[in-house]
Computed example of a mutant assay.
Amino acid sequence: MESTLEEVEFLVRSPNRVNVLRLLAEDHQTRNDLAAETNASQATLGRILTDFQERSWVRQLGAEYVATGTGRLVASGISDLLQIIETERELRGIVEYLPTHAMDFDLRHLADATIVTPSQTRPDAPVSRVVDLIEVGSDVTVFSHAFNHQSLAAVHERVTAGEQTFRGVFSEDAVEALADDATLTGYLVDLLDADDAALRVRTEDIPIAVTTVDDVVHVILRDDNGVLQASLDTDDDAVRSWARDTFDHYWRTADSFKRVDLD
Rank of each mutant, 00 (worst) to 15 (best):
239 V>C: 07
244 R>P: 00
256 S>C: 10
236 D>L: 03
251 W>G: 10
237 D>K: 04
249 H>K: 09
249 H>L: 15
227 V>Q: 11
245 D>Q: 03
239 V>N: 01
235 D>P: 05
241 S>M: 09
228 L>V: 04
249 H>A: 13
225 N>S: 15
233 D>R: 08
254 A>Q: 10
233 D>E: 13
231 S>R: 00
243 A>Q: 06
225 N>L: 14
227 V>K: 07
228 L>K: 05
227 V>R: 11
245 D>W: 00
247 F>T: 04
234 T>M: 03
227 V>P: 01
248 D>Y: 09
232 L>D: 01
248 D>C: 12
226 G>E: 13
240 R>V: 15
243 A>D: 07
252 R>Q: 15
243 A>G: 08
237 D>L: 05
230 A>L: 07
244 R>I: 10
247 F>V: 04
233 D>Y: 04
229 Q>N: 08
234 T>A: 02
243 A>K: 01
253 T>S: 14
238 A>H: 11
237 D>F: 08
249 H>D: 13
229 Q>W: 01
251 W>P: 04
254 A>C: 12
239 V>K: 00
226 G>K: 05
237 D>S: 08
245 D>K: 00
244 R>S: 14
252 R>L: 14
231 S>W: 00
232 L>P: 08
244 R>L: 12
252 R>K: 14
234 T>R: 00
244 R>Y: 09
250 Y>H: 15
236 D>S: 08
249 H>P: 06
241 S>D: 14
240 R>G: 13
239 V>F: 03
256 S>E: 13
254 A>T: 11
232 L>H: 08
238 A>Q: 12
250 Y>T: 09
251 W>M: 11
231 S>L: 03
257 F>P: 08
249 H>Y: 13
251 W>R: 09
250 Y>C: 06
247 F>E: 01
246 T>V: 06
229 Q>S: 08
249 H>M: 13
225 N>K: 06
238 A>L: 06
255 D>N: 14
234 T>C: 03
228 L>E: 09
